[in-house]
């Protein structure tokens, strides 16, 4: 209908003619109208509050408000580097983040490909549903489950050890506690996260795989390609842009490890590996009402994240001759 009106009104309109853009915009105003809501959302909730960033350079007090609080220059930033363990914080954050990215990123893709390849429709549906369920478990319950399973005496792991002791396979009373082991913390954190998120993460890739043209597959089959070769040379290349965009977006979170799960999994013994920037901000920024201090650290993280996103996008563009990049 829209195209009809366009034609009837201005039959000679050509692409490079003056006023084309405006006319096109006008002619599809119903569509543009639908864009207003998301636009408003972004302006109000994402750009609007940005003026508050300034409290990172102020000593924020609720009474004086954001504009009225005193300027303190770089004090809040310096304070972070005065914390004697700031290097450990950054190191832990990056280690968890990279581990999470490298181990967690490929798994939903692999799972999506498996589901796509399988011919057993019922099995596929069951697998999808089962693997989605953990996504709906809240963080608190997730950590509760970890605590229950890995308790060295009363947990599932404890019961296995009990049986091993019974059969004299283990002959020591040393109850090794995985949950408070420094070395195990990152693995527990990352792999429980993968278990929880992998099913949900496949949705996007399955949608992308559904868009693979059946003609390509038919042509490949006629040429004698096996199923595996078709995955390699038909499926993966088709979803590669999606993968690359997802990767670029993910790399923008490299400095942000959510505090809830880490905070819940922390204890006295694994603290050297489990204290990350966000938990520190929570403990010393929010809980002690030092909002300026928290903002300063948050802002620093965001700055690093922005640099990362631009960097990865640049690399992606270079590697794919400008096709896989986000912008």
């Amino acid at each position: 209908m829209v195209s009809k009106r366009l034609k009837s009104k201005d039959p000679d309109l050509v692409y490079n003619q003056k006023g084309y853009a405006w006319n096109k915009f006008k002619s599809s105003w119903q569509l543009q109208l639908m864009l207003v809501l998301p636009l408003l959302y972004i302006i109000i909730f994402h750009y609007g509050p940005m003026y508050g960033i300034q409290i990172a350079w102020r000593n924020y007090r609720a009474r004086d408000g954001i504009w009225g609080s005193a300027w303190v220059g770089w004090k809040n930033f310096q304070e972070f580097f005065a914390y004697y363990k700031w290097k450990t914080l950054v190191k832990n954050t990056l280690a968890i983040s990279f581990y999470q990215l490298l181990a967690g990123f490929p798994i939903p893709i692999i799972l999506a490909l498996f589901l796509h390849v399988s011919n057993h429709k019922i099995l596929v549906k069951i697998t999808q549903n089962v693997s989605y369920i953990p996504h709906f478990i809240s963080t608190v319950i997730m950590v509760g489950i970890l605590n229950q399973v890995f308790n060295p005496i009363t947990g599932f792991y404890g019961h296995i050890m009990k049986v091993l002791r019974q059969h004299k396979i283990i002959s020591s009373n040393n109850y090794y506690d995985i949950l408070s082991s420094e070395g195990a913390f990152r693995h527990l954190y990352v792999w429980s996260g993968i278990w929880q998120a992998m099913g949900w993460g496949t949705i996007l890739y399955i949608a992308a795989l559904a868009a693979v043209s059946p003609e390509l597959h038919e042509a490949a089959t006629i040429d004698g390609a096996s199923r595996w070769k078709r995955v390699l040379h038909v499926d993966i290349p088709t979803i590669l842009p999606t993968i690359s965009i997802m990767f670029i977006l993910r790399s923008g979170h490299i400095m942000s490890v959510g505090y809830e799960k880490v905070y819940l999994m922390q204890n006295k013994l694994n603290i050297n590996k489990s204290e990350v920037i966000s938990t520190y901000v929570y403990k010393y920024g929010l809980a002690k009402n030092k909002l300026s201090y928290g903002s300063a650290i948050g802002l620093m993280n965001s700055a690093i994240n922005s640099v990362m996103i631009i960097l990865v996008n640049f690399i992606a563009n270079k590697l794919s001759d400008g096709e896989a990049g986000l912008f």
Binding site: N151, P152, I153, T154, Y175, D177, L179, S180, N267, K268, L269
Partner: peptide, 13 residues
């Protein structure tokens, strides 16, 4: 060394 991380409820178990 569980003493350092266990809370009272778990110790109960």
């Amino acid at each position: 060394s569980l003493s350092l991380t266990t809370n009272a409820t778990t110790l109960k178990g």
